[in-house]
Design a protein around this nucleic acid. Structure first.
Lengths: 353, 353
DNA sequence: TCATATACTGTAATCGGTTTCATAAATTGT
DNA sequence: ACAATTTATGAAACCGATTACAGTATATGA
């Protein structure tokens, strides 16, 4: 029951393997009669050339690797969907490498990235996409940077929504700061003055950028920023719940809060609801990321779309260009969009007027 | 800048490639001095053996393929997380093959499955996992069945949550009917008598099983089933919204509804909320799947956990056994669990008593 | 008609490993 | 001290394709 090979086909067709290979790849003219005879055999035996053997000589595998933190976080499947579509249309298949969700102790995400990186090299992938993880760090360790940088010399790498300062790698990224500015300005435009921002980790670049966008917009509008209204320490619904509780315990309460991501916003929504507040009547909430679930809640969540699909498809396009030795910009910025839904409204003080 | 090979190492170490291979795989004794010399060179050059070449002779790649409909549907990432963990611990890397989310016209999901199937064969994967798609059909076409069945003879295949009757393939599946029974009985236990069921497609096996569980439980409890309270035609939030609207327009309204999946439940929740109903006070809702979001809404959704992670990890374990020629049961059933949260309560008529 | 392309095909090398077989060297047992 | 193992290593075949090179047959042109 051995799988059949070009040799089997060649023998039965009374030609050499070279000729079989020629009709397989249409790489040189073959007499019609011969070609027909061969194609017929190929169909008869459902012959499929062994991709390993082919890749070994061709030095290209049509495989790429995508490394991301946690497929269970709904933001990533969105990116992946965009990536998948674009990658496939170009003939690539990809390995999914999740560095967190399969990790019980959660302690060595970066080690896991390294493992995957070298695994992918062994598998001879044509390119690698990295999303999140070490590239999300505000100040990644130099070793980590070097490791990826070295690899970048051997195989095309695209960084999505992150950076390794100094590594000089090609990136595709949402304009995080702009997104936060959009969110904050939207609240201000509605009349809010007492605005808080919650969620994220202060050692992560996206948190920093988003916070910066918030701060800058507040300042630009001459609004005060209260330190106790800037809470971080996580990205989860549970954390969002806690942060909001904390906010609600304060003597003065904000009338609106910018959440560093949608999950935090959901947690905040729950906490607010539980405390008897009505969103958006008593409190406005803006999320960030626009995961699909954002439009499933009631009220539907006003949020910032990072256009995850586009992020993914751009990553694939750019990686492809890199692989085919085309020139690409060092940084492709995706501009985020405000998605106004139901969780934001003018503050009660205003509507009471 | 060519990548270095065993030959390079061999030459510099003054040994033959065979010896290098030996220390690489620990497959035969090598004199300590020689071994040290070689390992040192391996480290020096950061040598990584080419997996293509290795796989070509070894006839095993350590790669598996996982085919699923839509990574954007939060149920699948859960499965994937479980799968990932188990698969990796056994040394596998996997190709993610999404048959829907990257598909604009959505018309040829099955064709896509076929393409992926043959692609995976070319890539010489050690095994394949299929989730959803054609295996979810109540009565899949014979051609589809045959195709997969034939493939099953050449490479191990595990079907997750689905079936191809007659193909005799190994399966891992949640007990769909039991899940629906649990959900329905829970509502009945709370005192509900007027119960509807919404969502799904009646040509799909899971919908059929879930509906059957519902029907059977209602009958067992001597409760009537109204035909107009059984609505299907989709799995999305949008559809759930519509179905619930439809339900609410009827002269008689149910006091509880079983939703064929969580997304439908979210839609139903929105529609109910919009109509001024309070869940669970005025209406109880049970979901199905227990996707992560289920506990993010308020009220949190009572639902049936199919234990997606376990489904995934079992699939990986079983596939591994198949690959390593171990015996496995034809069908591994995962028993679902009722997760009681906040969307169910006794009907108003009762609490009014 | 003869020189020159062009069409068609085969031989053998190659990709980068693993593995069988053979052989030499070092141990062991008695 | 010598046969019998065991250790250590190399030469070469092999996995299943692609492809450079070479050669023959046919076609085209002057």
């Amino acid at each position: 029951m051995k799988p059949i090979t070009v040799y089997d086909i060649a023998k039965e067709a009374n030609v050499s393997v070279a000729t079989v290979s020629r009709v397989l790849n249409n790489t040189a003219p073959v007499k019609k009669a011969t070609r027909d005879r061969i194609t017929e055999l190929i169909n008869k035996y459902q012959f499929q050339p062994n991709a390993l053997a082919r890749s070994l000589t061709k030095k290209e595998t049509g495989m790429i690797g995508i490394i991301l933190p946690d497929i269970t976080n709904p933001f990533f499947p969105e990116i992946l969907a965009g990536f998948d579509k674009a990658a496939r249309s170009k003939g690539y298949t990809y390995f999914l490498c999740d560095t967190v969700s399969s990790n019980e102790d959660n302690t060595d995400q970066y080690a896991r990235e390294s493992q995957y990186l070298s695994l992918l090299m062994e598998k001879q992938v044509d390119g690698i996409v990295m999303i999140g993880g070490r590239i999300d760090l505000a100040k990644p360790g130099q070793e980590l940077t070097n490791e990826v940088m070295e690899l970048g010399k051997r195989v095309p790498i695209v960084l999505v929504n992150g950076n390794l300062p100094g590594a000089g790698l090609t990136r595709v990224a949402a304009d995080e700061k702009l997104g936060a500015e959009l969110a904050t300005q939207h609240l201000i435009d509605q009349g809010h003055k007492e605005i808080a921002i919650i969620g994220g980790f202060k050692h992560m670049s996206n948190t920093i950028a988003r916070t910066q966008g918030f701060t800058r917009t507040m300042e630009k509008n001459g609004l005060p920023i209260r330190k106790e209204w800037m809470i971080n320490g996580g990205f989860s619904v549970r954390k969002g719940f806690r942060f909001m509780e904390e906010l609600l315990q304060g003597k003065v309460r904000p009338t609106a809060v910018v959440c560093v991501n949608d999950l935090i916003a959901f947690g905040a929504l729950k906490a607010a609801t539980k405390a008897g507040l009505r969103v958006p009547d008593d409190l406005s909430l803006v999320g960030y990321d626009d995961i699909p679930f954002a439009s499933y809640t009631s009220p539907e969540l006003t949020t910032i779309s990072l256009k995850a699909e586009e992020l993914g498809s751009q990553a694939a396009d750019i990686l492809h260009k890199l692989i085919t030795k085309n020139k690409v910009p060092k940084l492709t910025k995706i501009v985020p969009e405000l998605r106004i839904r139901e969780s934001t409204a003018p503050p009660a003080s205003l509507s009471a007027n």
